[in-house]
Structure formats: structure tokens, C-alpha cells
Amino acid sequence: MNFTLKIWRQESAKSKGKFVVYNVSNISPDCSFLEMLDILNQQLIDKFEKPVCFDHDCREGICGACGLYINGRPHGPDEDITTCQLHMRRFKDGDTIVIEPWRGRPFPVIKDLVVDRNAFDKIIAAGGYISVSTGGVPDANAIPIPREDADLAMDAAACIGCGACVAACKNTSAMLFVAAKVSQLARLPQGRIEAKERVIKMVAKMDELGFGSCTNTGACEAECPKNISISHIAKLNREYIKAKIF
């Protein structure tokens, strides 16, 4: 397969950046999207040009490192997958593919397609953890947890912090990310203890870092590779209002 790639190139955080067009040929349909970029980079290296920088790590859809805005959608055209799980058979031969980094002031571009997602770490550091001593591994059913709560907490825990929600959101809101963590921990007995403090601190940090506010558009949910529902955002709102009033 042959493709024309229109890729955002930016030397550093401070430089201006522009789109550069590349052509790749003889790409196998079974090639993953990142492998296709590897092939392009090898071609560039062979020509003594600088390769295109992009984030990646596990290439199994579980680490959350990769994340490209492909043809107007975070993680590309497929549902419920990360960029590394996207394959070239999903495109048509001869397609022009536009590849952009996540956009948003809290996610500044470091180089080419790599953005600084430190803002997420800062939000987690503000309270997205359990600091009470939970002891060693408890007996399986020592603390009874309703099945529904356990399931919803598990759904929320699936968040890999890739930032697709922020990238997709027209408001650059991080509400789905924050909601996933708040909801996950607030539903479980060990996390419940610090729920009030946690939600206040995490939302304050989210606001401070310059993320937008949620308008319940649902683009985050549509693009989330882990299919996290915006009903967790309602839970976040509930937790926050409750924490502030009572």
C-alpha cells in the first residue's frame, strides 16, 4: 500500500512547527500504524534526515504512551483502540493521512508529535491515590463490595491516561480522566475514606493547569480507547458538589 503522510514537524517546544508531506510505499496492510511510522523514520535516517518523533512504549494498547491525532480523530478511525493497535488495512491505498499531536495548552508539544502530558501526573499527584494504610493483600472476600460498585470501579480503572479525551474534547477538558480516577476510588471502601479531599484537590489542580470545562458533548467517551463512560463524569460532579456542600 502507498500513502501520503502529512505530519506535524516541530523542532522544539519553542519553535513554530509546520506540516511536512512524506510518501511511503510498499506498506503491508497488516503493518501497524506505528510500524508504518518506523518504516518512514528508517527511510529518513537513511537519507540523513531527522526522524519523526512520536511517543510509544508497550505497543499492546495498555500503557497509554502512544497517542496521535489521525485524520481528525485521536487514535485514528477505529473504536476502542490506541494508536498502536491501529493497522494500515484500515486505510485505503493512496490515502492522504494527516497526523497531528494532541492539542491543548496543558499538553504543550515537546517535539514533532510528542506532547508533554505531565499535567496528568500532576492531577494524580494532587490526590489520585489512596494514602491510608491498607495493610497486606487481604483475603478475597474480607471486605464485601457490591458487585455493581466493583464493576463500575473496574471500568473506571481501565483508564490508561493517554489523553485522547482531552485531545478530542472541543473544550480541552480533562473531566473524563479526572472522573475515571475519582469514580474508581470513591466506589471502593479503601478509597472512599479520602473521597472528599481527593475530589476537591484533583478538580482544583485540573482547573489550575488550564484544562477547559465539560459541556457534556461526549467526544471523550467516543474516543476513549478504554471505552470509559461519561456517567463517571456525572459521578465526579456528584462527588464534587457533595464534597463542597457537606
Binding site: 506535524w8 497531528e100 492539542r103 491543548g104 495548552r105 459541556t215 458533548t217 461526549g218 467516543a222
Partner: peptide
Amino acid sequence: LQIKNWIARGRGYYKANYSQTSFFSKYM
């Protein structure tokens, strides 16, 4: 909130997002 949300994006996308979303919410 809208102005703050516009500011939060900074540089916009070359290709506009076309995620499956609630249509009317985009034009509030």
C-alpha cells in the same frame, strides 16, 4: 466558560474533530 475553553485549546487542529458526539452540544 466558552472563552476559557477556547483559550484552553491554544493552537487548533488542522483537521477538525469528527468524533461521534451529541451534535447540538457543539453549537451551544
